[in-house]
Design a binder for these strands. Structure first.
Lengths: 150, 150
DNA sequence: TAATTTACTTGCAAATAACAAATACTATAA
DNA sequence: TTATAGTATTTGTTATTTGCAAGTAAATTA
C-alpha cells in the first residue's frame, strides 16, 4: 500500500493552494485565514470568539485582532451575549454572508469540476470515504478534533 | 448528498491542525512551513529552490529566507548545480533527513491510529478514494497542480 | 558582444504572530 | 457582602513572516 502520508500530503496541499488563490470578491481581498473564519462563523449559530479561535487552532489574541480586521472590513459584527456579557457573539454582516456564500460556491464549483473527471460510482465512493475518515479522525484524541494545544 | 466543501473543509482542517502541533524533534522546533519544505525536498532528488517554492506556492523571496533558516539550523545545504550555476540544489543534511523521517513516522503513526477505527475494507476504500481524488485534481487546470499564481 | 531572461538574494515596509499584562465580567466561598 | 478565583476578550510589545522592488550573477538569445 502506498505511503499514507504522501497521499494525504498531496491532497491537503492542493486544497491549501486552492484556498490560497482564493479570493477577491466584491472589492474585498480575503486571505486564507479570513475565509476560514467566515466559513466557521457561517457554519454556526452566533458563536463566541473563543469558540471560533479554538476551532481554528488560533491563539485567542491573534484571533481577536483578526476579528477586528473583519469588522473594519464590514464583514462581521460582534454582539455581547445577554447571558454572559464577557462573551462576544460573532455575526456575519450581509456583506460577510455574501462573501462566505461566494467562496462556498467557488469551492463547490471547483469540487464539481474535479468530480466531473470521475464516474458517479467513484464520486459516491469518495464522498463516503471522506465521511468515514472524518468520523475516524474525530475518534482520535491524538489530534485534531478542533481543540487547543496540550 | 452532503455539502462537498464542508466535508473537505473539516478534513483538511484536521490535517492542518495535526501539522500545526508538529514538531519538536531532537532539539529543533520545526514549523509547519519548515516541515513541508523538508518533506518536499526529501521527496525529490536534489530539487532547485524555484522548484520547491513553486510546489509549495511560496514566493521565491520568502522561500529563499526559509531555506536560509533551515541551513542555519543545520538541516539543509545548498549546492550549485554544475550544469547551471545560477541554480542552487537543495540537499537535506543527515539531521534534516532524520527530522523528515521522524515527522513522516509521526504522521503515519497518527494515520495508522485513525485507520484502526475502520475495517480493512473501509481502509482500502479510503486509500483508493484519495488516490482517485488526487488524480482527478491533477486534471483540473483551475487549480492546484503545484504552480505559481496567475 | 550586447540585450534579455532566469535563479536567486537583499532592503524594506507591512502584515501576522504570540506572550504578558490589563480589563471586564461571572462564579464561588467565607 | 465581599473577597477570591476564574473566564472572555483586548491591548502593549516584540519577534517573525510576508512580498514587492531592486539588485547580482549566470545563462541564453540576437
Amino acid at each position: 500500500m502506498q505511503n499514507k502520508r504522501e497521499l494525504f500530503q498531496v491532497m491537503t496541499r492542493r486544497f491549501g493552494l486552492l484556498n490560497k488563490n482564493c479570493c477577491s470578491i466584491g472589492g474585498h481581498d480575503i486571505s486564507v485565514a479570513q475565509s476560514h473564519i467566515l466559513y466557521e462563523i457561517d457554519q454556526r449559530d452566533h458563536p463566541s470568539m473563543q469558540q471560533i479561535a479554538d476551532i481554528l487552532g488560533t491563539d485567542i489574541t491573534t484571533f481577536s485582532r483578526q476579528a477586528q480586521n473583519l469588522i473594519k472590513m464590514g464583514l462581521l459584527t460582534k454582539q455581547a451575549d445577554p447571558n454572559d456579557r464577557r462573551v462576544s457573539l460573532l455575526i456575519l454582516t450581509s456583506d460577510g454572508q455574501y462573501i462566505a456564500n461566494t467562496i462556498n460556491q467557488q469551492m463547490n464549483s471547483y469540487l464539481d469540476e474535479v468530480f466531473s473527471y470521475l464516474t458517479p460510482f467513484e464520486q459516491q465512493t469518495i464522498i463516503h470515504s471522506i465521511q468515514l475518515l472524518n468520523e475516524a479522525m474525530a475518534k482520535s484524541d491524538r489530534c485534531c478534533s478542533p481543540i487547543r494545544e496540550e
